[in-house]
């Protein structure tokens, strides 16, 4: 084995382990051996993956997507866009938490377009009022001359969608409770899941805020008709600093046939494919 810790080329044995890791996975003992090699392993693995991907591309004739699969993908795309656009820019890439104010909302702030300087009479605030009045007159004239335009309807918020879904007869409702994990705290949660539309939401109270650059929460859905060792990925999400009460949309990666339980784990940024379940912070089973 190579001397660990420095940036260097792996020897054949280490390279064989890296290749095996990329192609088929490692046993715990093999993984420990590879870990001992040092931090360059990640970069070497990337290079091997890149080579393997290039070979795959060279040998792959592209077959068109089946129509049914395309339809499902387009629905997934629409759901993904809706969820991500609910709160954060797409760049965040995680299901956003929608924070529910715990106190009555403050009156709406002045529009950002109104420059702060206009409130200072020493800086021409009087002219600002004249301009504003002129704009108002023009706007009124325009409104009087224009045909009525339908007011766009705002899409319901996740909290509203959760409430609506909860009122439907066929939805599944599951209560989540805290675990013994220190990160669990006193979290409680309510899952509302519609098996027919594969849509759902979770309302959390007391789940600790997370730094997305360090760790993220990930939801898992245990499907009674799938292997219980591999629950369905329900998406990663964040709890903002102000989010003691938050509603999270559920995004099942694949169709869930019979949701039996829900769990939330703490994972590295971006989530994982298979959780080691080292930090389970909330759990709840559907009543049978």
């Amino acid at each position: 084995m190579s001397d660990p810790g420095s940036q260097h080329r792996p020897d054949d044995a280490t390279l064989d382990l890296l290749i095996q890791q990329v192609l088929e996975g490692l046993s715990p003992a093999e993984q420990r051996a590879l870990d001992a090699w040092g931090t360059d392993a990640g970069r070497e693995r990337q290079a091997i993956e890149q080579a393997a991907a290039a070979v795959s591309l060279a040998a792959t004739l592209h077959s068109p997507l089946p129509a049914g699969l395309r339809t499902r993908l387009e629905q997934s795309a629409a759901d993904y866009v809706k969820t991500v656009r609910t709160v954060t820019p797409l760049r965040a890439a995680a299901a956003p938490a929608v924070v529910i104010p715990t106190a009555p909302a403050a009156p709406a702030a002045a529009p950002a377009a109104a420059p702060a300087a206009s409130s200072d009479p020493r800086r021409g605030g009087g002219w600002g009022w004249v301009a504003a009045a002129a704009c108002l007159v023009l706007a009124l004239l325009g409104w009087m001359r224009s045909p009525p335009v339908a007011t766009p309807t705002l899409p319901p918020t996740p909290a509203e969608q959760l409430a609506s879904l909860a009122g439907q007869a066929d939805t599944l409702k599951v209560t989540l409770a805290a675990t013994k994990d220190p990160a669990s705290g006193n979290v409680t949660g309510t899952v509302v899941w519609d098996p027919a539309t594969q849509k759902g939401f979770i309302r959390f109270v007391g789940l600790a805020p997370n730094d997305p650059a360090v760790r993220q929460y990930q939801l898992w859905i245990f499907d009674a008709e799938r292997d219980q060792r591999y629950p369905v990925d329900g998406g990663v999400f964040n709890i903002p600093a102000s989010g003691s009460d938050a509603v999270i949309p559920i995004h099942a990666a694949v169709p869930v046939r019979k949701a039996a339980a829900f769990a939330v784990t703490v994972e590295k940024p971006g989530g994982v494919v298979v959780s080691a379940r080292e930090h389970i912070v909330a759990l709840g089973a559907a009543s049978t």
Partner: peptide, 11 residues
Amino acid sequence: TQEIFLDIWRS
């Protein structure tokens, strides 16, 4: 394929 596209969008 569905899982992969979700991974792609997220990544």
